[in-house]
Simulated scan of single mutants.
Amino acid sequence: MTRAGRWVFGRLDAGQAWRDLAGKGINYDVSEVRGPAWNIDTHRHALPAERPGPPEPDGSWEQACRLVRDYEFSPPEIVRALYDPDAPLAGRDMLLEARWHAIHFYCGVRVTEVVDETRDDGRRVWGWAYETLDGHLERGKVTYQVVKHPGSGRVEFVAESYSQGAPSLGRITFLGWRLFGRRTQLRFYRRCGERLRAFTEAALRGETVPASPPPRVGPLVTAPSDTSVSRLDSLAIHRVGPG
């Protein structure tokens, strides 16, 4: 393991925490999902447009799909991920680090769906979804999709989700989630759209995106690639599987 790898998630043995996800299951049943107890959201973000018609080779849609596949859009100041890049996307386990000031929460998700289709109205859609595992702060599912509208050439990033705080959270964590979790959640989706647009624009200008290889923990990679590794992270409060 590299020196950076030892510190990528502070004091946490990130590799072991990721391996432990294999024994965890999805922490909710879809039959439970209904408002108002659950937040049900759709967040849309415009990306650089293309000419009308199917996606252009190396165009906005293809560049955005590549970035979404590798979780490069995630804002590292809010959420970072650790995963095996050699594992198939479908079924991939990801250890997420949710960062809230000096408290870092480590929770697992699993990719349970890959979307790759042309819909009846001609929209070309690619993306994937993950669902929360036992011990996660939340319960729910997020689907990230890149959509090309062939009639207009419009390209957009769409994040659809349903979620709620895990009922098994401790009292202090639950109260903190009620006070700050939703606000952080909405800021996360806003920043995802901002980053994906900026990175897609940079790629279309011919810039190398990401600009550098991601930090690694053995065979695992950290996403996004611009995650900065600091020894100060070792001073944060680490909570693994708080839910």
Rank of each mutant, 00 (worst) to 15 (best):
L235C: 11
V111Y: 02
T143A: 14
R66T: 06
H43W: 14
G53H: 06
R6H: 11
P242L: 02
L232P: 04
R171H: 12
Y83M: 06
R178P: 05
S31L: 13
W38G: 04
G151T: 08
I78T: 13
F174N: 13
H238N: 08
R171C: 13
L82T: 03
A198N: 09
R205S: 10
W7Q: 11
M94K: 06
W126G: 00
T184Y: 07
P224K: 03
I40Q: 12
G53L: 04
F188M: 09
Q164E: 13
R171T: 14
V142P: 00
I78S: 08
L204H: 09
P219Q: 11
D41Q: 12
V115W: 02
G193R: 03
R239P: 00
L47A: 01
R190C: 07
R11I: 09
A98E: 04
F73T: 00
L186S: 15
R231Q: 12
F105Y: 15
R92K: 14
E131F: 00
G108Q: 03
A90P: 08
W38C: 04
R19A: 14
G15V: 03
L169H: 10
I40N: 08
F174C: 08
I78D: 09
A4F: 07
V229F: 06
P52I: 07
L67R: 04
R34V: 09
P55M: 06
V115S: 04
N27Q: 06
N39H: 13
H45D: 12
H149A: 03
L137W: 00
T112H: 13
R34K: 14
S60E: 00
F105S: 03
V221H: 07
H45C: 06
A203Y: 08
M94D: 02
E56K: 04
G35E: 15
T132G: 08
L204P: 01
G10V: 03
R3Y: 14
L137T: 06
G165C: 09
T222G: 04
L232M: 13
E131N: 02
G218V: 10
E62F: 04
G122E: 02
R187S: 15
S74N: 12
T200Q: 04
G91A: 11
R216I: 02
A90Q: 15
G206I: 05
M1Y: 13
Y71P: 01
E62Q: 15
E62G: 05
C192D: 06
E62H: 12
S230V: 01
Y106L: 09
V68Q: 05
H101F: 14
T143F: 11
D121C: 08
P88M: 11
V8F: 04
T173H: 05
P75G: 09
E72M: 06
V221K: 01
L82P: 01
P88N: 10
Y28V: 01
I237M: 11
R239F: 01
A223R: 05
E131R: 06
Y71R: 10
R110L: 10
P224Y: 07
R123K: 12
L137K: 00
P167D: 10
R239Y: 00
R11Y: 05
R183T: 15
